[in-house]
Every structure is written in C-alpha cells, then in structure tokens.
C-alpha cells in the first residue's frame, strides 16, 4: 500500500504552471529523492503535499485518505512532517521547547501532555547531538544547528512521512554525510518515509535514495530507481542542457 499518492497534480500561479500533471507514490519507510533545478517546481510540490497550497487539479492521498483539501495543520497529526529550505525556528523559544512543540501537535499530540512532550524533546535532543544547546534560544543557534533542530522538531512529531526541503544546502560535505546517515537510520528504525528534495544531484542524498523523481519546469521527467534515473539521458539534459544545443547556439 502506498503511503502518499499524488494523482495528476497541477498547481498554477496565474499563468505560471509551477507543477504540471505530476503523479507519483511513495511507500512506507521508503527514501525518495526529488531532484530538479531551481524553478523546477520542487518547493511547490512540497507545499501541495503539505497543504500550504491546494492544487487546481489532481488529488493527493495519504494512507488512502483523500487529503487534497485538508488544511496543513490537520496534516501534521496525520503524520506529515516537514523541514524548510531556510530553517524556521521559533526563535525566542529554547531548543527544547521548539522540539517539544513537534511532539505536542504531531501524531502523538493527543496522547502527550506538556511534560511528556518535553521528555520526548529531550530524547530527540540527545539523538540529534544538540545536548549542550538544550536550553538555548533557537534564534541563537548556528545555521547548521538550526537545521538539526528543525529536523529534530519534525522527528518529534513522529511522522510517517518526512519532507525535507533542501535539508543539506549550505552544509559542509562531511556534515552532510553524517547527517544523511543519521536521518536514514532514524527513518529505518521508526519506519518513516523520507522525501528529500535537492537542487543538485548530491552524492550523499542521491546515493542513498531508493528512488529518484526528477522534475523539470514543473513536469516529472523521470521516476525510477536511483541507478536507472542517474543514467537517464533526460536527467543529463535537464542539468546540462540538451547535447548539441550549445553547438547550435
């Protein structure tokens, strides 16, 4: 059974078709990479899955439930977590409080009270290696720490699906490797499907993804297991321009 399924989703902004007739699905616990150049519609696609925007056409299913027009605050308790391209911490709150918010309003939200949520936060903080920043205001963290905290905040929701928007952008390659490994191991342990979206074909992310979806100008051009996708000539074209094009120009 698919965890998330998109059927012919189209999202337009005025005359601009940001996502054009995209369909795909992701299974429980799968690690999917969405790759595409700047402006290819990745973030819009995330926003549709997440409920920030509703699509003009097509449907979105989560656990076989139609969530096409479900507001975003109702999707989090269903199990859809998300991190942003530029981290968006609740700056005045401490790292612990930030992460506790994830637990409080996530899939376990109804069962957890404030104290239990703070306990969950403490576990996540340990796991993310943010121990020494536990009681620091999130606004005072470095960009990398903010990123870690945001991932922690999303994990504290105990999501079934985690959407990571350019999660590794701007990080040192060594950190990326560590982080990707950690995220994947957490994902496997807790059976979280992960959709990581990257602008560039990053070794770390792409290398570990089971499946790749490549977007180009709002359209899905490739949807295949990683090895096949990387060898696909359309992917090379999308990134480097069509062969021969440069000569003609």
């Amino acid at each position: 059974m698919s965890l998330l399924r998109l059927e012919n989703v189209t999202k337009q902004f005025g005359g601009l078709v940001a996502v054009n007739n995209v369909s795909f699905e992701i299974k429980e616990g799968e690690f999917l990479g969405i790759v595409g150049t700047n402006g290819s519609g990745k973030t819009t696609l995330f926003n549709v899955i997440n409920g920030v925007f509703f699509p003009e056409q097509g449907r979105v299913f989560f656990n076989d439930m139609d969530i096409t027009r479900t507001p975003s605050y109702k999707r989090a308790p269903l199990g859809i977590g998300r991190t942003f391209q530029i981290p968006r911490p609740f700056a005045s709150a401490t790292v612990r409080e930030n992460i506790a918010v994830g637990a409080m309003f996530g899939t376990m939200g109804k069962q957890l009270n404030v104290d239990q949520s703070l306990e969950v936060a403490d576990h996540v903080i340990e796991r993310m290696g943010l121990g020494k920043h536990r009681l620091k205001s999130a606004g005072l963290l470095t960009p990398v720490e903010k990123k870690l905290m945001e991932i922690g905040r999303a994990l504290a929701m105990r999501p079934r699906l985690l959407l990571m928007d350019e999660a590794m952008a701007g990080m040192h390659p060594n950190d990326i490797d560590d982080m990707v490994e950690m995220i994947i191991s957490i994902g496997k342990e807790e059976n979280i499907a992960i959709v990581a979206m990257v602008e560039h074909i990053m070794r770390a992310v792409v290398g570990m993804a089971e499946k790749l979806i490549v977007l180009d100008q709002g359209e899905k051009i490739v949807d295949a297991p990683t090895d096949e996708a990387l060898a696909d000539s359309r992917v090379v074209d999308a990134y480097l321009g069509k062969s021969g094009e440069t000569k003609d120009a």
Binding site: N50, V52, P71, S72, Y73, K74, R75, A76, P77, R82, F84, R88, P89, F90, A91, S92, A93, E97, V101, G102, F105, G106, G109, R153, M157
Partner: peptide
C-alpha cells in the same frame, strides 16, 4: 509562542 514566531511554520507543525 510558535505562531508568534512563525505562523506558517506553526501551521505545518500541526497548530490550528
């Protein structure tokens, strides 16, 4: 606190 700091992020976190 969450919505005061970042309303969009708060919504995505499941806050009505």
């Amino acid at each position: 606190t969450a919505l005061r700091e970042d309303e969009d992020a708060a919504k995505v976190m499941g806050i009505h």
